[in-house]
């Protein structure tokens, strides 16, 4: 795995048009980003298309990385996650359009995150998991569902069988609690 400094250096050079640096960046990071695309989309062909879009975007926007305040890997992961969720939502919207509209929530529902999503991995993940443990039962799954499965408030309310407004109030409180814990 490349170090943060290496990734930052490649991004800096790519911003100046250095294709070799971009190439190195692709080789070092594409497996991670492809893993994310596969996890979110659960469809290889779509994940492959989205991964290409992601790297086109990274090349075109490398120059803006410097001022964004995110660590380089987070910047890359956020681009990948957003692009994959974007694609997932378009797919769901298309499917919902095909149905008669009454079972939209059902058509959009995604399976709950698999056990692999609950595995504790790196140190930051462990910190997040510790803070998730402090939330009321189910709330951590709602946050995960939104981040990794692109679930909307409507879908979350459906999944947890509560009114939409309740879902939102509930999640906002959990987010605050999470923020407090993560800032400790």
């Amino acid at each position: 795995m490349a170090t943060r400094n290496e990734i930052e250096a490649w991004l800096g050079k790519a911003a100046l048009g250095d294709r070799a640096a971009f190439d190195a960046l692709y080789l070092a990071t594409s497996a991670k980003l492809f893993g994310i695309c596969l996890r979110v989309l659960d469809n290889r062909a779509e994940a492959e298309e989205v991964l290409q879009d992601i790297y086109v975007r990274i090349w075109n926007h490398a120059g803006r990385y410097q001022v964004n305040g995110l660590s380089p890997m987070t910047w890359l992961i956020t681009i990948a996650r957003n692009a994959a969720i974007d694609r997932l939502r378009r797919r769901r919207a298309a499917r919902a359009g095909e149905s008669d509209g009454t079972d939209m929530a059902e058509a959009q529902a995604d399976p709950a995150p698999g056990p692999e999503a609950r595995v504790i991995a790196a140190s930051e993940g462990a910190r997040l998991d510790d803070c998730f443990d402090e939330l009321d039962s189910g709330h951590a799954e709602a946050v995960r569902g939104a981040y990794l499965d692109g679930e909307s408030y409507v879908e979350l309310a459906e999944r947890f069988d509560v009114p939409l407004n309740t879902m939102r109030t509930w999640l906002r409180r959990s987010l605050l609690k999470l923020r407090e814990c993560l800032s400790r």
Binding site: S30, A31, K32, F34, G35, I36, L38, R39, E48, L51, L70, S71, M73, T74, I77, T78, R81, E116, A117, R118, V119, I120, A121, A122, E124, G125, R127, L128, V143, R144, Y147, L148, L178, L182
Partner: peptide, 16 residues
């Protein structure tokens, strides 16, 4: 963005 990105930690890399 930083904290939520950690949700991808358990996702195994897959060579494209």
């Amino acid at each position: 963005a930083e904290d939520l990105a950690a949700l991808t930690d358990p996702i195994a890399p897959v060579a494209p």
